[in-house]
Design a protein around this nucleic acid. Structure first.
Lengths: 219, 219
DNA sequence: GTGTATATCTCGGGG
DNA sequence: CCCCGAGGTATACAC
């Protein structure tokens, strides 16, 4: 990892055209070759960047970074205040918990918390426009497609509606209904779901985990 | 801007729970107080971060960053390799060209390039499920809703279809048609648009700009 | 502030 | 390789 602090001008041409007027900024060059230009505010996004794989050509006060997609980042260094390099090694990586995958797993294990009598057919049931989170059977011979979200918003309802449209074409599955399951559901998403004939169910992530551990204690 | 390179362990608890095992990383603290932890690969995203506004408490080998939303980032420093601070000042900011907003502006100024005789009613026309990019009148007393995208894909067509559904409920606007306008439109989006009775029009951004400057030259 | 749409989104998974 | 979907998405903008 190389860290340069410099008065610089930056031009990017690729997916769009962008220009950074002359100012003092931090330039990060990582081991995989990717380059990021940061201002002194806004944690997440660099002002300009170029992802790996790319080629960095370091000329006389000018760096030219190009990639195979034809994008081009030109950094003109007017005044270099700091320039240092560190060996960091490979990072062991981030361990996460509490994202959609966990919620989906919990509901796959006990779909009946969403509606009495549901049994899982499979997770990530494939359709020609993408996989349905959970496909279940109800006790009356019908099929229920379930879309799981952490936060339930309009686009999630649309996504489920698209799947239902496809699944209903399969005579082995008909009739097919939908359940939209999320930790929180916005009123707008609720309204759209109602208009599409889709049930909207808020689920309690913490509560589900407790049910899990509670049942385990019975053994 | 403060730059620290250190052997560290990081724990985040907030919207999810995440843990970074001990390793050598770069820690960036910006003037607005936000903190980012970077590994030596992947240009864009930090491994962990905390956005402003927040509070950084620097203890004995441990930094605790908290924010008003109840999120908490704890960085344990095992070995500090580098620690330096730079004054960068306020950045003049990024100048962009070629994003959706530009295209929308160009088409708002001359909607007739999409279809002969169209006149603008207004940009960002509000509905109860979100704003329509452009609402236009055609010469026959009808209304045309236009969704503008840089790259036209399926979800953009769905978005326009949703708006059309709502707009058609307003007797003052009927009949309402849709035009899906983008620099490039995928075959899938084109097919879906056709199925929904929506016209799909590819527009030439460069060409539109030239038309603009060309007409200005007439004065 | 809430809600919606955009992004040079990034990133990862599956065919 | 593209396509699709998730993200602690972040960010801008309108109401």
């Amino acid at each position: 990892m190389r860290i340069v602090v410099a008065e610089c001008t930056v031009d990017y041409q690729g997916r769009l055209t962008a220009h950074l007027p002359r100012a003092r900024r931090l330039i990060m060059v990582k081991a995989d070759g990717c380059v990021a230009v940061h201002a002194d505010g806004g944690a997440y996004k660099p002002l300009n960047w170029m992802n790996a794989p790319n080629l960095l050509e370091e000329g006389d006060g000018t760096w030219v970074v190009t990639n195979p997609k034809g994008e081009r980042l030109v950094i003109t260094l007017h005044d270099v205040i700091h320039d240092s390099t560190f060996e960091l090694g490979i990072d062991p990586g981030l361990q996460k918990d509490g994202v959609e995958a966990n919620l989906q797993q919990l509901l796959a294990d006990r779909p009946w918390v969403l509606e009495d009598g549901l049994t899982l057919i499979r997770r990530e049931y494939p359709t020609d426009i993408g996989p349905v989170d959970l496909l279940c059977a109800d006790p009356h011979g019908g099929t229920v497609a379930i879309e799981v979200k952490r936060r339930g918003e309009i686009d999630g309802v649309e996504q489920l509606a698209r799947y239902l449209e496809r699944l209903s074409l399969d005579p082995r599955l008909r009739p097919v209904r939908g359940i939209f399951a999320a930790q929180q559901i916005t009123p707008q998403a609720r309204t759209l779901a109602a208009a599409r004939g889709i049930a909207a169910v808020e689920v309690d992530y913490e509560g589900l985990q407790e049910v899990d551990s509670g049942e385990l204690r019975l053994f």
